[in-house]
Amino acid sequence: MKEIIWFVIGVVTLSVIAGLLQPSKKKKKRRNSNSKKRTTKKPVNTEFNRASSSCRSDEVILTLPLDKMTGVEFERLLTLYFRDNGYTVKEVGVGGKDGGVDLVITDKRGEKTAVQAKCYADHNKVQVMTVRELVGAKRNHDCILSLIVTTSDLTGPARKEADQFKVDYWHGGLVDNKLRSWGKWTPSNRKVKTTTTKKDQSSSKTVSNINCSCGASMVKRKNKAGAEFWGCSSYPTCRKTKAI
């Protein structure tokens, strides 16, 4: 009889314990399901990726400002520019496997130039290694000349290296000037100063026949003291001046 009583007590005890444990399991399952739902949400990256390998159509590229182009689109823009200026262009670096050369341009005399294009932000300058890669890689394409085209500039050591190995280079101000002179590149969101005075408008029309070392024309300007001087028209990208 005692054995039966202890057996009944044991069954009741086990059922009570099981009842207490069940809600906690359900809570754990709910917590786990909620945590899974929370972790599945991924933030959407809406920032412009300059390093993207995507390339929009030529019509779109011709309306894009340089800071809204990917590296591939900048190379394509240069291809269109050089072709319109009488060069035969071979797009070597399509897909990112350029080996130090993006374009090989050939003039009417048959002279080949290896071109390395760098679509960089202003603070990101071309390093020495890029110059060295271009010097070594141009031989693989039977090129005599070499050219670096960048939307920013070269570092000081990179400029010295380029001068030493006779590598020509176009910095951001010169690139912008050449593309605008071409006429087909018309960036849609070009910033226009709306607060210029009549004095500014009259002085900006006074353009000299003198060219800046960057290739842009010189414009007559005035300093704070009222003295006139020649300043580069691509200011503030280029800040070079000359006395009148």
Rank of each mutant, 00 (worst) to 15 (best):
L174P: 00
E161Y: 04
A137G: 11
G172L: 04
L154V: 10
V131A: 03
F165W: 14
E133C: 00
V149A: 10
F165C: 01
L145N: 14
R159N: 04
R159M: 14
L147A: 05
V135M: 04
K138D: 08
Q164E: 15
V167N: 05
E133T: 05
H171M: 10
H171N: 14
L134I: 05
T150G: 03
L154A: 11
L147F: 09
G156C: 05
H171C: 06
A162H: 12
S152F: 04
P157F: 03
G173D: 14
R139F: 14
H171Y: 12
V131M: 03
G172P: 09
E161G: 03
P157M: 00
L134Q: 03
V131F: 02
I144N: 10
V135P: 12
L134R: 03
D176K: 15
D153I: 13
D168N: 12
V167I: 15
W170Y: 10
V149R: 04
V167R: 01
V135N: 07
L174F: 10
R159I: 12
C143R: 01
V135Y: 07
W170F: 10
D142A: 15
E133G: 10
V135A: 00
T150C: 04
T151F: 01
L145T: 12
V175E: 02
I148A: 01
V135S: 07
